[in-house]
């Protein structure tokens, strides 16, 4: 079997970037599945795309802008209605620790 495309450490790193707590079995399964997908995706390497411009939108458009006009806001209560936790008119979150 060929060298896996993605290491367990990379899976852990990516999970941390994506803020996903994965269990150990999940990490292993994820590595195995990502490896299969990345192996499939590897077929793209066969294409020479050096002189090909990237497409980020299939339908090319430019300069879509709005005028600088104020529109009504959402009432605070409606905005907070979906918040899992609030305090007064604030959204409340658990304490912030830097990693």
């Amino acid at each position: 079997m060929a060298e896996p495309k993605i290491t367990l450490a990379e899976v852990e790193h990516v999970a941390r970037l994506a803020r996903l707590d994965l269990s150990e079995p999940e990490k292993k399964r994820m590595r195995f599945q990502l490896d299969a997908i990345l192996t499939y995706i590897d077929k793209l390497r066969r294409l020479d795309t050096d002189d090909v411009e990237p497409t980020s939108h299939a339908i090319p458009m430019v300069n879509v802008m709005r005028e600088d006009e104020v529109r009504p806001c959402l009432p605070t209560e409606e905005m907070l209605a979906n918040a899992p936790e609030r305090e007064g008119d604030f959204v409340r979150v658990p304490r912030i620790i830097e990693e």
Partner: peptide, 14 residues
């Protein structure tokens, strides 16, 4: 289209 004015009540300009 929310206003940019400073000092509104919390979460009133969203």
């Amino acid at each position: 289209g929310c206003p940019t004015t400073f000092g509104g009540a919390p979460n009133s300009q969203t």
